[in-house]
Write a protein that binds this DNA or RNA. Sequence first.
DNA 1: TTTGATGCAAATGTTTTGCATGCAA
DNA 2: TTGCATGCAAAACATTTGCATCAAA
Lengths: 136, 136
Amino acid sequence: MKTVKYSRQREAIKNYLMSTKEHPTAEMVYEAIREVCPNISLGTVYRNLTFLVEHGEIIRLRCGEDSDRFDGNTTRHYHFICRTCGCVKDLVMLPIDHIDAIAGEHFDGNIEGHYAYFYGTCAQCAAKETQTEEAG
Amino acid sequence: MKTVKYSRQREAIKNYLMSTKEHPTAEMVYEAIREVCPNISLGTVYRNLTFLVEHGEIIRLRCGEDSDRFDGNTTRHYHFICRTCGCVKDLVMLPIDHIDAIAGEHFDGNIEGHYAYFYGTCAQCAAKETQTEEAG
DNA sequence: TTTGATGCAAATGTTTTGCATGCAA
DNA sequence: TTGCATGCAAAACATTTGCATCAAA
């Protein structure tokens, strides 16, 4: 049977993801981990990210336009994406599972869940917009 | 100023997308259009799909795990993705914009909208599962 | 020892882009 | 004519994978 061996690289990746709220891409994880494991390869980062996702230790976010992002916070929550700066933020809100029932009302299959993310302008970008307007 | 010129290829792509409910990928569009425009290139398909999306004539779906899909139905609606066969179906349901307010309750930025898609088992796959269980 | 994990590089799959030519207006 | 759109091929980009080697158990 298949056992899991300890790996310093995987540990570093998991610790990093649990310590940040940045929702980094694989590339960003790679850059961050290189400060601890200078010889780590991008392939190893990808392999471990996939491993951790499959073992439920991190979450893969596919909400963006570009590459995947990763989240060390595995408690159920939703995300916000800023249309101006592209940042991803956690949202504090209760699960909205009632929308599954709404979606299923006129649907012939079996709805098991949903993915949802919210977009708009983050507080920082909204502040900058106001500044620009004032400056004219 | 920049004008838009007629193109047989673009017209064919738009017509195809408006005539199907398959939510095809760029590759699938390419294969379908080749029957009408045998010399069309994949690059032209991509260019026109992007053009049509930017002009609001079609919708780009990024809900899947793999490549983007396209939808000629621009009326506001939600989508269902089957976790078994990967098919994408339209959902008949009213907009659930109240979830934007829920998301914004404890959020410091400005929520303008949401993307949501539902997953589960489509009717066809559910039927097959039942058959297998009966046979097995 | 055994075998999973790594680093490296090559390969993959999707999408974009440069450029000479074609075609709509 | 003008310049947008095309076909083709090369490039870009994110991600995966083959393989020899390393290291955990």
